[in-house]
Amino acid sequence: MKRPAFAFALLAAAAVLQWAGPVSLAVQSERTLREGTRYYLRTAPVDPVDAFRGRYVALSFEGLRVAVPAGAGLQAGDRVCVPLTTGPDRFVRFGPPRREPPAQGDYLVARIAWIDAAQVATLRLPFDRYYLEERAAPAAERAYRDAHRAGAERGDAYVSVRVRDGHAVLEELFIGNVPVRRLLAAGGG
């Protein structure tokens, strides 16, 4: 500790970084949840675990394959802006991905997972999991399987997402049109 001033400066830099990341993420996400437009996405949940962030249901979404506009010059791994519209069944439709945000309308920032030979891209959304209390996640998956076996359509499992200025935050997971937490509290699964 020969240079305490330098050490304190480094410590201050570390403290700023340590607060800046989580706080900016939390503020931006909170604002999106409050002010963002709501969209619904069909999904199928399964139950894995993350050593750091706990147990969650992994979400496998429908409709992620979109045609790449000619001359867009996109590649797998690229960050793209995807226009959003709502279909007649109230679920979201993804528009053609571009590098720049659309002039009007909502969009979300996603990544291109891969592009096939027919120039159809598969999108990787910024949300692909729904965290639940460690005992609730397997119960949610069971509830989904039970609903599926009972003959329910896959569309019965879906999420609501709030979108604002390209930033998307997952709001709620529904199974059989009931929010999953309410379903589990009522003894489902």
């Binding site: 410590l11 570390a14 990341g21 993420l25 939390a26 750091f52 910024p126 965290y131 935050v169």
Partner: peptide, 27 residues
């Protein structure tokens, strides 16, 4: 991790670990 959990952020374990490593460096 908790912020990611509360706001349901996606996977990207690699980015999470890299962020933890880089922010720890000044310490």
């Amino acid at each position: 991790a908790l912020v990611a959990q509360i706001f349901q952020f996606g996977g990207d374990l690699d980015r999470y670990l890299l962020s933890c490593a880089l922010v720890a460096l000044p310490l």
